[in-house]
Write a protein that binds this DNA or RNA. Structure first.
Lengths: 353, 353
DNA sequence: CTGAAAGCGCTTACAG
DNA sequence: CTGAAAGCGCTTACAG
């Protein structure tokens, strides 16, 4: 292994000089000395030891990202990771990832081990739903600077403004003239986005003086695909069926789309408007649905910024940041058209095919 | 910061004793001593410094994962990451991730910096297509134990057996009695999976004594969604149209599905059989397509195993490992049925709705 | 059963 | 402009 000492030897200087020249003090040295050292380092293929550096400086230069092994619990959007990277790269920080199996989190012994032995200057915790209290306690006990991602807490967290996003979707449909607008969620997850989006929807409906229609699996349990399609068909067959629907996620929106188009002969984007939520516009279901987009990249960036601040002042609670989502138009919504109006007169929505 | 020294002080022993008891030599000590030390460590919230440990032992205990910022170049499947984690966790290794922007890779100065200063015992390189030669050189120059993921090289690599997967899809359709089987790829990527799957298809067709039909964008350029649907319609309208098709990816299969069902009134799974490739079975397009599944998890595991071996003997080239893919049946293929046979007599394929 | 001592590779005041 | 020396927190032969 090539060390500072070895370079010093080859270049005929002291280790301290090598360190200075290779570090922030090179301007103090004669060009000739600098050159000799640079050459030696280059020739020997010198790689500084981050560990040694970390030990001296007290900073590891790394930030940890904590994920659950449960995919639904801590899916990390691609652009979110990008945002994290870009933020860290600007400060020359590395990212260390760990997945904690849920079972082991309750196991007293395990968490301390991974949390303790894992040297990093701070933690990004992307552990969405059901964060075990034991984990929260441990993080406090060991005083690890941490930011919670996609978790709704008053301080030290960054998350999307799901309530506003619920309003947003509803207001979009209201502005198109729809009055019978339903909320649908077939997934029964326990993430706060489910209740917040619905509450935003309810809020917007109430403000517009309209009565809401909430379609959710009663038990909160997840229902399977066939049921989703059957259920969609059912509520859409009602004579006073909604003309528009806010769907919690694509896994709710697609069955609605399929039931409408394949079963009932309704054309989505004309006879039925759908707005849903996702991390990007996609048309895999055969049509690009109007989608409220997660501010993935910004979430990542914001989390890093907060974490840096946290590392500098670990005791100081930072007010949480709540980021806005944005609507991206697909082809699944259109102006409300009373059924008796000649359909030929309606604005044909663009289709991707 | 709590150190071994501090614990020693509190427990009334020497630092060496603390280190021994907290490490692998605790069995040599009196239960009473052990207890005192354990208690002190617990009470003080001791967190061992990974940096210090790494410095003494010469092992960082971390493995690096190198990704491109270009999403298409180094997408990492969820289960692949799982496999990597599980493999590393068994050996108490951490994972450090870095994304290298493509532009900077050609820039002489940048690569060395991140590659050099980034202490890890070895590297998993998931940088699929167009690996810059400069990068390969640097990794050799700095003698970093590395394994290439999803890259077809004779040694030190792990990748899926795409040629076999091309044969597999074709043989599945052959076994259902199909004779006019096409290969389609609309994406124009340059990953080896594109040519290998096609070659596997060609091989299987030749062996069966059948003439192949290859549908690919001529220039190798990516074509857009509308074009894909139009193109699909075009070749499917031919009187001697294929009764089955092997589609390179879902982005090829879905437009074919849409063209067949929405434009031509063909029912996929009855009038047209489709086999495609993906990392999992999905039915977002309205139907679960027969899919050849990537051995994601195994790829991750295998890569870690190879890397561990590489770290132990950095100079020893390891023969690459080529892992098999597996077919998962959806509802998009069925026995070949000559058009003149009464359709009512055909086996109705299961549909998800 | 326990501890004194050396050293991993680096940086940083400090002295010259 | 350059270098001797101390020390970051840990582990590991070695001695007792």
């Amino acid at each position: 292994m090539i060390t500072v000492e070895k370079i010093a030897e080859v270049a005929g200087v002291s280790p301290a000089t090598v360190s200075h020249v290779l570090g922030r003090r090179s301007h103090l040295y004669r060009p000739e000395t600098r050159q000799r050292i640079a050459q030696a380092a280059q020739a020997l293929g010198y790689r500084p030891s981050a560990s040694a550096r970390a030990m001296r400086s007290g900073r590891t230069g790394a930030v940890g990202l904590l994920l659950s092994t449960e995919p639904h619990r801590s899916s990390l959007f691609e652009n979110e990771l990008m945002g994290i990277y870009d933020g860290l790269a600007e400060r020359d920080l590395r990212l260390t990832v760990a997945r904690l199996p849920d079972e082991k989190l309750t196991n007293e012994g395990f968490v301390p081990k991974i949390l303790r032995e894992w040297s990093s200057d701070g933690l990004l915790i992307n552990y969405n739903a059901m964060i075990p209290q034991a984990m929260v306690d441990l993080i406090e006990q060991y005083n690890i600077p941490s930011i919670w991602m996609n978790s709704k807490r008053p301080t030290d967290a960054v998350y999307p403004d799901e309530f506003a996003a619920g309003r947003q979707a509803t207001e979009h449909l209201l502005s198109l003239g729809h009055r019978r607008i339903a909320w649908a969620n077939y997934s029964g997850g326990e993430h706060f986005s489910a209740s917040d989006r619905r509450d935003g929807y309810l809020d917007a409906m109430q403000q517009a003086g309209l009565s809401p229609q909430v379609i959710e699996s009663e038990t909160g349990a997840k229902i399977d695909r066939a049921e989703r399609i059957a259920l969609s068909r059912q509520w859409m067959e009602a004579s006073d069926r909604p003309t528009a629907v806010v769907a919690y996620a694509k896994s709710t929106a697609v069955p609605i789309l399929l039931a409408a188009e394949a079963k009932l002969g309704l054309r989505v984007g004309r006879d039925l408007s759908i707005v849903t939520y996702d991390n990007r516009l996609s048309d895999e279901s055969g049509m690009a649905l109007d989608t409220i987009i997660m501010p993935e990249y910004d979430l990542g960036r914001a989390a890093v910024e907060m974490l840096i601040q946290k590392i500098e002042a670990p005791r100081e609670p930072i007010p949480s940041r709540c980021l806005p989502l944005s609507l991206e138009r697909g082809a699944s919504s259109s102006k409300f058209m009373p059924p008796d109006v000649c359909p030929g007169g309606s604005l044909e929505p663009k289709r991707t095919f």
